[in-house]
Design a protein around this nucleic acid. Structure first.
Length: 253
DNA sequence: GCGACAG
DNA sequence: ATCTTGTCGC
């Protein structure tokens, strides 16, 4: 008998509800409210890359960049075997275990290089139950985290309506943003035009131990291109790892 | 029944 | 997530 996703879903929901109680929404670090983020020196980024046709084996990537220069200070690529499938709303159960391990490896070997904040590919509070992958990793790692999604998750009444498209068109320059308000009126995240030359916004939300305003300003400060540099570097380097370690896998038998 | 569905 | 080179524009 194969365990159907629905079996895990109820357990997953209660685990999300349980961990959510430990979530801290506001700023907890001095650099977060200091002018120019003075005191912030290291920003992290995590991501996973896959080989086409294989959704079980992946390359888990952690990078640490200097702030504000965005120069590489640390890099870790690790092949992992994922135990959970991707289920919308439960991305964390698939990706967090290996990302947490990467952070723990760093803490054990080079604690001085631990990032002061981690950018996560995916949503934080902007989530069906207000506990996305960025919240999940943040709480378990005990580190400030920011969620950045490249695509809009339609949740709690936030939809890709004509009004939404209109708000996007109103974003004129890098740093411009508008709030993503749930039907309840609560602001769950922010759509951000990350640079002058980028039309399609990114969706920023609180992961853990940071305010939404700080998360948005920091994200903008880390953007050279559309995707914040820590996530972009993690993405590029994990793909590069797969290219060199599994050249043209799956073709020709 | 139909559409939506982060990565 | 992955499939994929060139090409148009600033």
């Amino acid at each position: 008998m194969t365990a159907l996703p629905e079996d895990s879903v109820e357990k997953w929901k209660s685990e999300q509800a349980s961990l959510k109680q430990k979530l801290v929404e506001g700023d907890t670090e001095e650099w977060q409210t200091a002018p120019g983020f003075k005191g912030l020196e290291r920003v992290g980024g995590v991501d996973l890359s896959f080989i086409k046709g294989d959704d079980v084996n992946a390359c888990s990537q952690l990078v640490v960049l200097s702030f504000p220069e965005m120069e590489l200070m640390y890099e870790d690529s690790q092949m992992v075997t994922l135990s959970a499938p991707y289920v919308p709303g439960f991305l964390a159960f698939r990706e967090v275990p290996c990302l947490l391990e990467a952070l723990q490896r760093l803490e054990r070997t080079q604690p001085n290089l631990l990032p002061q904040v981690v950018f996560v590919d995916g949503n934080g509070l902007f989530h069906y139950r207000e506990f996305g992958v960025a919240c999940h990793l943040g709480v378990l790692a005990g580190l400030p985290c920011v969620g950045v999604a490249k695509n809009l998750l339609q949740v709690q009444g936030v939809i890709r309506s004509e009004e939404h498209q209109s708000q996007i068109r109103a974003l004129k320059k890098g740093g411009d943003s508008f709030p993503l308000k749930a039907a309840s009126g609560r602001v769950l995240g922010e759509a951000l035009r990350s640079s002058d030359s980028s039309t399609k916004p990114i969706y920023v939300s609180v992961g853990h131990r940071i305010s939404l305003d700080t998360a948005v300003r920091l994200t903008h400060a880390c953007c050279r291109f559309r995707v914040p540099e820590p996530i972009r570097q993690a993405d590029m380097r994990s793909r590069e790892y797969l290219r060199t370690h599994f050249p043209s896998a799956d073709t020709c038998g």
